[in-house]
Amino acid sequence: MDIATAHAQPKTRVALTINGHRHDLEIHPWVTLLDLLRGPSLQLSGTKKGCDHGQCGACTVLIDGERINSCLKLAVTLDGTNVTTIEGLGTPDDMHPVQKAFVEHDAYQCGYCTPGQVCSAVALLREGHGRSREEIREMMSGNLCRCGAYTNIADAIQDVMDQEVKVGMREAAE
């Protein structure tokens, strides 16, 4: 298909629920979810572009609750899905427990990989496969941090896990 023809085809209609809000969009098929989020129409630039090739994890968002690299998803393929970005997890005045733990444990430095780390950590907690320190490290290895905050990130996640265990035990006792 030549370029002009490809561009002349009608845009594709996509309905996405992003952070609880429905968006009806018409987009070219070559737009990735990451670029759609960060672009002029949505301006949800909390999701970061670090490599654009699935090699760093900075663009991690939750699609129907599962963590994925938004840079490798064409937005048109996600019609009807629920997307949760970092903006949907908490705000500076009302942070998600994972976000609070990241602040408390200094689990970031420059902050650029941080939204991806937080989304990934939230998913990790839900998945329930990583419990030990080693498992946390392995299951968070899809998120590179060049500032080297890894040990603090593991501390933050472990802290939230411990809190959840305590809450769970309290609830079980009640």
């Binding site: 970092i86 903006e87 500076p92 942070m95 976000q99 602040v103 970031y108």
Partner: peptide
Amino acid sequence: PRIDGPLKVTGT
């Protein structure tokens, strides 16, 4: 904790 922390962890 960093004063810019809440902005960084929330993507703002």
